[in-house]
Nucleic acid binder design. Structure first.
Length: 581
RNA sequence: GGGCGGGUAUUCUAGCACGGAUAAGGAGACAGCCUCCUAAGCUGUAUGUCUAGGGUUCGAAUCCCUACCCGCCCGCCA
């Protein structure tokens, strides 16, 4: 929105001129605030010392120097040491309505920036279904990716598939060797058995039986060890089989993600960096630096104590004593790979990865790489009884959460809209249920620890996904009833308090998108959406849009603007926007 | 032991990065609002030592220090 930017610039300019006229030094910094009481406020406290005047007196003096209205500045009032500026609302509203009329659905969308951004998210080990403890990862990651796309960046989302190591080897051994009878027995013996008939849920039992056997049968230990050895040695048969099992599991995980409207553009398999020698290249590079050393047993490490890493975490080991690579080594190779494909590399990670991520950055620095991934960490979601654990049965699966949400949404829609067809009701229930779940997860700051409670996760009113969807449906309903109309961009037609508030809120969409881009705080998007929706509801209650009046077309254009902004906000959140509900 | 992050009304969260004017929103409670565009909505009322204590500042929820509570991490695992 050019008007708001211009307005702020004009205000700053006016204040700077007034200050100069009063003999203030030219290096004074202006603080800009956007309170509810004014369109822009500038506090004058910092000017008190150099001018040797009371802040309130300065504010009054500056206000009298500025001859408003002038340009986009409708007025200035001094209050308690603040300068409160108000914008020329007619110009602002006209600007907004014009943009909406011209851009339609793409209002607020950024022009292509050409910046290639890689967002890696989810990347959970393909050894079991996604549970709510980690559900923040796909939701935060996907939301961020969508916001950056809306901003105009060229975004690729990516899942790093862990198909290397003991866990996945065990998993595939279990799939190959555990019989259906053994699986059945294991399920029967489990107290809170997971009886969902979906690959990722089923295969967990193969893994469980396998881990039990390794403790009970001594030969099994050797068998797994030999498999691991063959894997490390690059035995294609073993590697391919492990990958196949991981792929099967991934199929189940992806079904869950798809139900949440999360799809990944690309999958990178960890084993690739062993196969193509990239991990070995990392080893060679790290060994040739002044920071590298070897332990008594021959494992290589670099010393990170000069890189801001404290305590006993300074030894960053990158090979085993037998020379084979470690997860972290391959992660370095993976990041080099990502750097070659993208201008910005973003990792969405659990907070347990903080140290690892810091070490990775230091290692990159040691290798002479002047690039770093941008890490976005999230705290785990726990249950009232403690940390989620599949093993202990203290767990809520994302599949169950989605099902429950959709069921409850279905019950609601059935209550309200018996006029709709069964098919419509189901579609809306799905959109609403998924919307509620995604919204409730993304609305809180990612570093806040969350305790999962069904009633919070499934909230359909107040500050919720369905609230935004409802407002979108209301706007659609008005537009549907209005039929065809000629867009009116004359801002002077809209004078009601709520019309102006709405217009100002809508005008901020681009700024919010920019903020999300810069800070990666995705929770600003639902907060903004809620603000717009709430103001629309006030407007809706106060102003009859369809009623014949001089302002009808302008109001309809404003409703259309709300519809588009809300639709785009919901898109950013990965939430569908049904036209009725 | 060391490092990192959280602690805001009964409850859940926003605000903190960049210090500013009476600390914002949701749930829950209470009281109103469907002869008018979807009541999953709107309006109003009540509820706070922003964990505690120091410091910096004209001004601190926000910055600094200390303590306490909670979470996470500190493998030749992935």
């Amino acid at each position: 929105m050019i008007v708001m930017e211009k307005f702020v610039a004009e205000c700053e300019d006016a204040v700077v001129k007034a200050l100069a006229a009063m003999g203030a030094p030219s290096d004074l910094r202006l603080v800009k605030e956007f309170p509810e009481t004014a369109d822009l406020a500038i506090p004058c406290f910092t000017f008190a010392k150099p001018l040797k005047m009371a802040p309130a007196a300065i504010a009054e003096k500056i206000a009298s120097e500025i001859k408003a209205p002038c340009g986009l500045i409708a007025g200035v009032t001094p209050l308690n040491g603040y300068l409160n500026f108000t914008v020329d609302t007619t110009a602002l509203v006209t600007d907004l309505l014009t943009e909406v009329a011209e851009q339609g659905e793409s209002f607020g969308k950024g022009k292509p920036t050409g910046v290639r951004v890689n967002v890696e998210h989810t990347s959970t080990n393909p050894t079991g279904p996604v549970h709510v403890g980690r559900a923040r990862n796909p939701i935060i990651g996907d939301t961020l990716a969508r916001c950056l796309r809306m901003r105009g960046h060229d975004v690729t989302t990516e899942y790093y598939v862990n198909d290397v190591g003991k866990q996945v080897v065990m998993m595939s051994w279990g799939v190959a060797n555990v019989t259906p009878e053994e699986v059945q027995k294991e399920i029967e013996e489990t107290e809170k058995a997971d009886d969902r008939d979906k690959v990722d849920h089923r295969l967990v039992y193969n893994y469980r039986v396998a881990t039990k056997k390794i403790h009970e049968v001594p030969e099994m230990e050797a068998e797994i060890a030999s498999l691991l050895e063959r894997f490390e040695a690059g035995d294609q048969e073993v590697i391919d089989y492990v990958k196949k099992v991981a792929e099967t599991m991934l199929g189940g995980i992806n079904e869950t993600l798809a139900a949440m409207n999360v799809t990944l553009d690309r999958y990178t398999w960890e084993s690739k960096f062993i196969a193509n020698g990239a991990a070995k290249e990392i080893v060679a590079k790290l060994q040739n630096t002044p920071y590298s050393g070897k332990t008594e047993d021959g494992a290589s490490y670099v010393d990170l104590k000069d890189f801001g890493i404290h305590g006993k975490n300074t030894k960053f080991t990158f090979t085993r004593s037998d020379g084979t690579t470690l997860y972290t080594t391959r992660d370095l190779a993976y990041h080099m790979d990502k750097f070659s494909r993208a201008d910005r590399v973003i990792d969405v990670l659990g907070e347990d990865q903080k140290l690892g991520s810091q070490q990775l950055c230091s290692a990159l620095q040691i290798m002479g790489v002047d690039r770093k991934p941008e890490a976005l960490f999230y705290a785990f979601v726990s249950l009232p009884e403690g940390r989620m654990s599949t093993r202990k049965g203290v767990v809520v699966y994302l599949d169950d959460l989605i099902d429950e949400a959709v069921d409850r949404a279905y019950a609601e829609i059935q209550k309200r809209r018996s006029d709709l067809s069964e098919e419509q009701m189901q579609a809306i229930a799905r959109a609403v249920g998924v919307g509620a779940v995604r919204y409730n997860i993304v609305r809180v700051g990612s570093d806040k620890q969350l305790v999962f409670k069904w009633e919070d996760a499934l909230s359909f009113d107040g500050n919720s996904g369905p609230y935004l969807q409802y407002v979108h449906a209301r706007a659609c309903s008005i537009l549907r009833k209005a039929g065809k109309f000629e867009p009116c961009t004359d801002g002077s037609k809209l004078t009601d308090e709520y019309e102006i508030k709405l217009a100002k809120a809508l005008a901020r969409f681009e700024a919010v998108l920019k903020d999300v881009d810069e800070t990666k705080r995705v929770n600003m998007m639902p907060a903004y959406g809620h603000e717009v929706a709430a103001i629309f509801n006030q407007f809706y209650a106060a102003v009859p849009v369809l009623q014949a009046s001089d302002a009808r077309e302008a109001r309809l254009t404003l409703v259309e603007a709300t519809r588009v902004v809300l639709k785009n906000v919901l898109w950013c959140l990965g939430i569908e926007s049904p036209e009725e509900m």
